[in-house]
Amino acid sequence: MSKRLLFITPIFPKKLEEDYVVPFLAQFTYVFAEQTDVVVDVISLAYPFEKIEYKLNNVTVYAIGSKFISPIKQFPFMLRAVYKGVRLHKKNKYDGVLCFWYREAALVGVLLNKLLGLKLRVWFLGQDVQKGNKYIPLLRISPKKLIMISKQQREIFYKNHNIFIDKIANVAFDRKKFPELNKDERPIDIIGVGNIGFIKNYALFLDIIIVLREFFPNLRAVICGADAGQKPLLDKKVQENQLEQNITFTGRISLTEVYDYMNKSRVFLHTSNAEGAGLVLQEALYLGCKVVSTIEVEESDEIKNHFFFSKDTDVLTNNIKEYLNNPFEPVRIERFKMEDTIQCIYESFFN
């Protein structure tokens, strides 16, 4: 009898072309099903927005279609997800349930665990470690069933909730998705990647560009990401400071296109206010960029010639200036391997 797991997530791509939708989660799911002896099914709660069943690569997805509505309004949809999970288990006999984010998906997983006795694991993936997450005191899931994506996230969670989580499965990427490393000319001086919302803090990104332009009048910067509420504010700042010739906003583009932009860039500037593990930092390093970030990565001393961290705007600006003033030689750096992440999750269920 084959091994089977049920993944529960709030969101999953509707088609392969939507590679910008939760890229790590999707890549992990596809590669996990491809490289292990486990059959994977997915219940997606909010997106796709309609109730449908479909197959992507070797994974079957059951979309509940709740959309991104308030938790109270989502409750009937969560019950539908539980019912779907019960019916699927009757047919498929799952060995366990993996929930992405300690929120609605975790609630569905807990109910399936209680009803069916399935082994449960919940994987924190970002802001769900924060104090305001009401699902943590509500569900009180045993720490042995919880998984973190980084040491930093574990420290934040312990500080906020006084609960220590032992297991870490680092975010990683599928190397097959990346282009060959560009060792030729890189016409983009500075790039930023991520939806244009409060968390990414692109106002600081523009502040740094404004200062750097005094030293590099022809500076070329690019921001890749869809508008998440802050774009009009950035447009105003661009106009007020005459940055139209220095900054390009691509809007929403595919992950493949993002990688192409990064592969043509010298410096990756990350001005985020918060980050669970910063997969995009790993992607930038793998594509040969020098990374300057307000978010730390684990054991950054090992890559100090390629990664720089600070919360001080002047220090960040001066470091970028130094990078741009010196010869640039791109080097691939891979912080965490997808194979190790897959092994960690696999052993959580089959050990």
Rank of each mutant, 00 (worst) to 15 (best):
F309Q: 04
E180A: 12
K114S: 05
K67Y: 06
E180H: 11
F12D: 02
F249P: 12
V42W: 00
G65I: 04
L204F: 00
V291Q: 08
I168C: 07
K51E: 15
F309L: 09
K3V: 07
A81Y: 06
L233Q: 10
Y286H: 09
E34K: 15
Q343A: 09
F77M: 09
E53F: 01
V40R: 03
I320V: 09
D189H: 14
K14P: 01
I8A: 09
K159S: 14
I43T: 11
Q27H: 12
G251Q: 10
F336Y: 15
K145T: 04
Q27S: 15
L16N: 08
Q74A: 15
F157L: 15
R4D: 01
P187I: 11
A228S: 06
E299H: 14
I342T: 09
L98V: 03
F124E: 01
P187L: 10
G278F: 07
K231D: 02
T36D: 12
Q153T: 12
D340C: 07
D227Q: 15
A169N: 04
Q130Y: 11
L279G: 03
L287V: 02
P13V: 05
F268V: 02
N133Q: 07
K90P: 06
V258G: 00
L324E: 01
V40T: 11
P48G: 08
P179V: 06
F309D: 09
Y286M: 12
L219N: 10
I303D: 04
N133L: 01
S348E: 13
N318K: 15
S300A: 15
I247E: 00
P71E: 05
F205G: 00
L204M: 13
F249I: 06
L118D: 02
C99P: 03
G276V: 08
S348F: 03
Q239G: 00
V108D: 03
E298S: 13
V22W: 00
H270R: 07
N318G: 10
G96E: 06
P330L: 09
T250I: 05
L6D: 09
N170K: 13
F12Y: 11
K145C: 07
P76N: 06
D314G: 12
I163E: 04
E298H: 12
A106F: 04
F100K: 03
Q153Y: 06
D37G: 07
L181Q: 02
L116R: 07
Q27R: 09
Q239L: 12
